[in-house]
């Protein structure tokens, strides 16, 4: 039984409420996005996105993500081929990043 069906999500699949998130949900969202397993490297990025959002109210840019998360840009795209910032935000249960960068 999927717990994903029990939480509110927008049309693009982002959680409506940040506080609904847990690691189990993260795994289900990842699988839905075509990422079968979340490795420690994935978690490093997802946690950084989520922590930054909770601390500052905005998700980091891809530039900052590559410099500060501990995972560089090349690897970010290897981990999240369909867009690291967008996917890590979705998996981390925070809103889609609003910036253009």
């Amino acid at each position: 039984m999927s717990t994903l069906t029990a939480v509110a999500r927008n049309a693009e699949g982002f959680l409506e409420r940040v506080e609904d998130w847990d690691r189990e949900l993260a795994l289900e969202i990842a699988r839905e996005a075509g990422i079968a397993e979340l490795t420690d490297r994935h978690w490093l990025v997802v946690n950084y996105m989520r922590d930054t959002y909770i601390k500052t109210g905005t998700a980091p840019t891809i530039r900052t993500l590559g410099k500060e998360s501990g995972v560089q840009v090349k690897e970010l795209y290897a981990l999240f081929p369909k867009g690291p910032a967008k996917l890590a935000a979705k998996i981390g249960g925070i809103p889609k990043p609003k910036g253009c960068i």
Partner: peptide, 18 residues
Amino acid sequence: KLDIPPIPEFLELISDSG
């Protein structure tokens, strides 16, 4: 301020992004 990199760094970013 908007975290838009200077051109040389921006090109590296795009290249690293694939």
